[in-house]
Design a protein around this nucleic acid. Structure first.
Lengths: 222, 222
DNA sequence: ACCTGAACACCGTTCAAGT
DNA sequence: ACCTGAACACCGTTCAAGT
């Protein structure tokens, strides 16, 4: 009376589960209709019953990511602090599946969770004194920045399979370090810092802090 | 005694020229080996004499963009002002071929022009009091931010062919504007601002200003 | 309702062969 | 040195047909 997972019939959620695993282990490029069908022991065309096009499937992946966000409730904290908390929540969700993070960009205004996040961001920026247009602009930049922050985080070279990550980084670092120290003194000195990352948590905190500081700097209330 | 352009023999630069035109007019996705060969009235395999893989061709496109940058010389201006000038130069170059901008990210440390730009950025940030590691971090974020700033600029939805841009935007705007004003008051109010852009120049200035303000905010000298 | 077979129009890439 | 022919292993997608 066990449900064998070889024949539990297909399902939107089952497909997305497998696609997410595939993206995590082999990168987004490995997520193809045909490969996915193979993994699910089904014919490629079967997926077209559940998704109209591949884009719909990818949109589903983006929505999955954004759906994980637990957008912080309004609080009594200063607006900049609330902004930081929102971006923290976003980055936290994106980091759970970095390979899929780029897909979130296009879905942010198209799914429930993304709209809630954006609405709260606009609200917080209004507290900072930004006009509607300015707030929209800052919010857009903020969300996009967090996505690239995760997308090309230390461990994750974009489009490169998880296995080749380390060797890729090493090659880049060596190339930098062996540049002429006369022409590129700072590049050579920063070879390590530019290609790796000592503290991962610090990397994300810094990226978030940079954006919050920018918002504070441009805020009419400062 | 005219050189007919049907039979001037192939050449790395000729291929890149045509690829750039193709990307500009039909998007980066239209740049395929086979399509490019067709445009050049040559067989697909001919391109493999001039480029080892398609990635090399794309790298060439990225280098083209970065090669256009005229990195400002060191000056007596305040460091934040010099940073702004550097980012201005970068954005200016990227905007000449926005479809190709994403390719610049991977090439920034691999081509001459990109290295000069990065070196100067690190130098300017050192003037701002940043440590080597901090400067590397800020520089990385700055350059990546400018790339996405251009990549998803008002007129250019990523991956969408130039023709479908306007209708795409309209659909998004209508979807936003017709949301429940009770649940999403600010989203509805910002529907226009989030999906279009009144002043293009202002859009880029704002994106640059946001980053410079962030750097100023995090600078030990402030 | 849910899936398959067969087919179409695409990709990037290799390798031997032509001039 | 520079290009072609033929072939391979992939893609996404459609459409009629099966159960």
């Amino acid at each position: 009376v066990l449900t064998t997972n070889t024949k539990t019939h297909l399902d939107r959620e089952v497909v997305l589960d497998r696609a997410l695993e595939l993206a995590d282990s082999e990168g987004l490029a490995a997520v193809t209709i045909r490969r996915l069908a193979q993994e699910l022991q089904v014919t490629p065309m079967a997926l077209y019953w559940h998704f109209r096009k591949k884009d719909d499937l990818l949109a589903g992946l983006g929505d999955r990511l954004l759906g994980q966000i637990e957008t912080p409730e309004p609080s009594e904290a200063p607006w900049a602090e609330q902004l930081r908390a929102i971006l923290d929540a976003l980055v936290g969700a994106l980091r759970s599946h970095p390979a899929v993070a780029p897909l979130a960009a296009a879905r942010i205004l198209s799914c429930e969770a993304g709209r809630v996040l954006t609405e709260r961001t606009l609200e917080v920026l209004a507290m900072g004194g930004f006009s509607t247009d300015e707030a929209a602009n800052v919010a857009h930049r903020a969300l996009q920045s967090m996505i690239v922050l995760v997308t090309d985080a230390p461990g994750v070279e974009p489009g490169v399979a998880p296995g080749d990550q380390k060797s890729h980084k090493r090659i880049k670092r060596v190339a930098l370090a062996s540049l002429s120290p006369d022409r590129y003194p700072r590049l050579v000195a920063a070879a390590d810092a530019l290609t790796s990352c000592a503290d991962e948590a610090a990397y994300f905190d810094f990226g978030i802090a940079l954006l919050v500081a920018g918002a504070v700097g441009l805020s009419p209330r400062s």
